Amino acid sequence: MKGRISQFGATYAGAVGAGLASAVLFSLVTQGTIIAIALAYLAPLPIMIAMIGFGRAAGLVATALATLAVIAIAFAQQVQETSDGALGAAAFSGLAFALSLAAPALWLSFLAALSRPKDTASWSIATGAGRAFARDYYPLERLLAYAVAISATIAVIATIIVSSRHGGFDAALNRADEALTPMLESLAAETPLPHDVDLHKLARLLVLAAPPVVAASTLLMLMLNLWIAARVAEVSGRLPRPWPDIPHELRLSRAYAPVFLAAIAVAFVGGLPGLISAIVAAALGMAFSLQGLAVIHDLTRGLKYRAFLLGLIYACLVLPPITPWPLIVFAAVGLLESAFSLRDRKKNSISPKT
């Protein structure tokens, strides 16, 4: 009995700590520094650890407490600046946090913990005794697909809300142009730009690029934090599933390849439909990049210089001048994988013949 009470207390103590940590990390984004933004990128991590390591109830408690803590922190910050509308602004911050970060983190980590006995259809989080039997575990393919849908939906909804609040897409774009162009002019005065650069066009391009970048970065954030959370749970002995073979199992259904190419084509239509298509293309493009990176990890297994090659690849990812190009290459590899099943071909070629 004492053991159960102690375990219960530890579970919910961990959930409370996870919720508060997530709220603090999320609130750091208001500082605007590079370090603060980098730490805010880890805001989903505590919720995911609570869900994967301690179970559904702990994940729900961490999510609810994190949302309330974000509201409290935002309210305190608003009151320091102005008392008018502080509670409404704080409530909006909490709602934005819950819908765009906490709920996706909870849902993806919940799915990652699911499994089912062989030859059954019902998914659940297995107990210690249940894991002793043969089980199927929630496929990484579905996790990645859910993450794509969530990331694209968040960016699309945010774009529609901003457009509607400013009287339509064109009006919102004009307002953003008016606000951003003076900043670019100040920057151009300090850092000379080519004489033929139209700052108004550049401002509009930056505004139009923001929602697709948000979609792609949100997907990367969710998947990276999910990987870290699972590793933490594995090290602590709380991961409710065997560690998956990510290089071989991380993939998108082939059906997404034509959707990705169609979204790129429609993005050139322009206007709000074109921007929404660009958001979908960006989210799928990042997913195919992750698939391409997994393919490279899988296909290079057994190579003598694999460690050096992978180290060079990851070094290229963190070098600002060429950061986009590796992602484009990875996406191309991911599309080739969808078309030709490169990993399965390799596996079949080295399997012993019967």
Rank of each mutant, 00 (worst) to 15 (best):
residue 122 S to K: 14
residue 59 G to Y: 03
residue 56 R to Y: 15
residue 71 I to N: 13
residue 91 A to R: 14
residue 122 S to E: 15
residue 70 V to Y: 00
residue 119 D to Y: 14
residue 103 A to K: 10
residue 101 L to Q: 04
residue 47 I to M: 15
residue 124 S to T: 03
residue 83 S to E: 12
residue 94 G to T: 13
residue 69 A to Y: 11
residue 65 L to N: 08
residue 77 Q to I: 09
residue 75 F to G: 09
residue 92 F to G: 09
residue 116 R to S: 13
residue 74 A to N: 11
residue 117 P to L: 10
residue 94 G to L: 06
residue 78 Q to P: 07
residue 121 A to E: 14
residue 47 I to L: 14
residue 47 I to K: 07
residue 101 L to E: 09
residue 114 L to F: 01
residue 118 K to R: 14
residue 109 S to E: 00
residue 54 F to M: 03
residue 125 I to L: 03
residue 56 R to D: 09
residue 79 V to W: 07
residue 121 A to V: 11
residue 75 F to W: 10
residue 91 A to G: 10
residue 104 P to Y: 01
residue 52 I to D: 00
residue 123 W to T: 06
residue 70 V to L: 02
residue 89 A to V: 13
residue 111 L to C: 09
residue 99 L to K: 13
residue 115 S to H: 15
residue 88 G to F: 15
residue 79 V to Y: 15
residue 106 L to M: 04
residue 87 L to N: 02
residue 81 E to P: 04
residue 50 A to R: 11
residue 76 A to E: 03
residue 48 M to V: 02
residue 77 Q to M: 02
residue 63 T to Q: 05
residue 116 R to K: 13
residue 89 A to N: 06
residue 99 L to V: 10
residue 101 L to M: 13
residue 58 A to Q: 03
residue 98 A to G: 08
residue 59 G to A: 02
residue 100 S to W: 09
residue 94 G to A: 04
residue 86 A to F: 15
residue 57 A to W: 12
residue 72 A to Y: 08
residue 79 V to S: 14
residue 57 A to C: 07
residue 105 A to I: 07
residue 76 A to F: 12
residue 50 A to E: 08
residue 128 G to V: 01
residue 51 M to F: 00
residue 124 S to F: 01
residue 62 A to Y: 12
residue 124 S to Y: 07
residue 84 D to Y: 13
residue 69 A to D: 12
residue 122 S to L: 06
residue 82 T to P: 09
residue 127 T to K: 04
residue 69 A to Q: 07
residue 53 G to Q: 00
residue 50 A to Q: 05
residue 121 A to Y: 13
residue 95 L to V: 03
residue 112 A to H: 08
residue 126 A to L: 02
residue 90 A to W: 01
residue 65 L to E: 11
residue 121 A to K: 08
residue 126 A to K: 02
residue 95 L to H: 02
residue 53 G to A: 03
residue 65 L to Y: 06
residue 118 K to Q: 09
residue 122 S to P: 13
residue 88 G to E: 07
residue 126 A to P: 04
residue 79 V to N: 10
residue 108 L to W: 02
residue 50 A to L: 04
residue 104 P to E: 04
residue 54 F to W: 08
residue 92 F to H: 15
residue 75 F to C: 08
residue 86 A to E: 15
residue 74 A to W: 15
residue 57 A to T: 02
residue 109 S to M: 00
residue 61 V to R: 04
residue 68 L to W: 10
residue 84 D to L: 11
residue 120 T to S: 08
residue 70 V to W: 03
residue 65 L to S: 03
residue 88 G to C: 15
residue 78 Q to H: 10
residue 46 P to D: 07
residue 113 A to R: 07
residue 101 L to S: 04
residue 85 G to Q: 09
residue 73 I to P: 07
residue 106 L to Q: 05
residue 103 A to F: 10
residue 62 A to I: 04
residue 104 P to H: 14
residue 46 P to V: 10
residue 51 M to D: 01
residue 113 A to G: 05
residue 104 P to R: 02
residue 111 L to V: 12
residue 58 A to W: 05
residue 118 K to Y: 13
residue 61 V to G: 06
residue 107 W to D: 05
residue 59 G to C: 01
residue 47 I to S: 10
residue 68 L to E: 12
residue 81 E to H: 11
residue 97 F to S: 05
residue 73 I to H: 15
residue 120 T to M: 12
residue 127 T to C: 00
residue 99 L to C: 06
residue 77 Q to F: 04
residue 126 A to Q: 01
residue 120 T to I: 12
residue 121 A to W: 09
residue 108 L to K: 08
residue 128 G to D: 01
